[in-house]
């Protein structure tokens, strides 16, 4: 049980993160990044395809 404040709180609560939660973060990162990247590529290809 920890009571913390500010950056230290953020850091310590992150370090106490169990592996399942870390995996969830990892998946979320991959989901966000791949969705953004796909959309970026799709937009660029669209410009290229329109004449």
């Amino acid at each position: 049980m920890t009571i913390l404040q500010g950056c230290a709180q953020c850091l310590d609560s992150t370090r106490a993160t169990p592996p399942t939660v870390q995996a969830a973060y990892r998946h979320a990162i991959i989901l966000l990044a791949s969705a953004g990247a796909t959309l970026f590529i799709a937009g660029t290809l669209l410009l290229r395809r329109q004449r």
Binding site: M1, A24, H27, A28, L31, A35, L39
Partner: peptide, 28 residues
């Protein structure tokens, strides 16, 4: 297409938070 692309990202953000929140917890 571009408007819906933005919308897609909006929901992707919500869904990412969905998965993280689902896995999160605290220590008693």
């Amino acid at each position: 297409f571009f408007a819906l692309g933005g919308d897609l990202m909006f929901f992707v953000a919500l869904i990412s938070v969905f998965f993280v929140t689902k896995a999160s917890g605290h220590f008693d």
